[in-house]
Amino acid sequence: MTRRLLLAVAACGLAATAGCAHPDERGDAAAAVARQLAEAATAGDGATACALLAPDTRAELESSAGTPCAAAIGAEDLPAPAAVTAVDVYGESARVVTATDTVFLGTFPGGWRVVAAGCTGRGDGRPYDCALQGG
């Protein structure tokens, strides 16, 4: 019995590397949300862009700007949409790298939402520096 359970956990552990459920689909969904944010922000569609943000990210943006999200997000000057070069999905988090941006996402009841965008690497294992992120 113990060996059977071990194998079950082993299989899940191996599957969990990519999220334990259709990693390609989850990655594609995360990339789609990242692209929608870039498109909406570039087009000046603040309402659509803000609907794609994680609650804490949206709250932080409104708090720091002192204006509603839809009005504030345009000033963040997020990079324009570009081809996706890499997608990483681990559990409830994802990272989408495009030719112009790195976007971090988390899962929510409505699907993937953007936790941070407009991010640039700082090297040495330090967190990305992001134009838009939660508190």
Binding site: A16, T17, D88
Partner: peptide, 22 residues
């Protein structure tokens, strides 16, 4: 082996939450 594979995935999930590279 399972620990290493699952551990890498769990570690990377935390890395992404901290806005760091997997």
């Amino acid at each position: 082996l399972v620990q290493s594979v699952a551990g890498a995935a769990a570690y990377n999930e935390e890395q992404l939450r901290r806005l760091q590279d997997p």
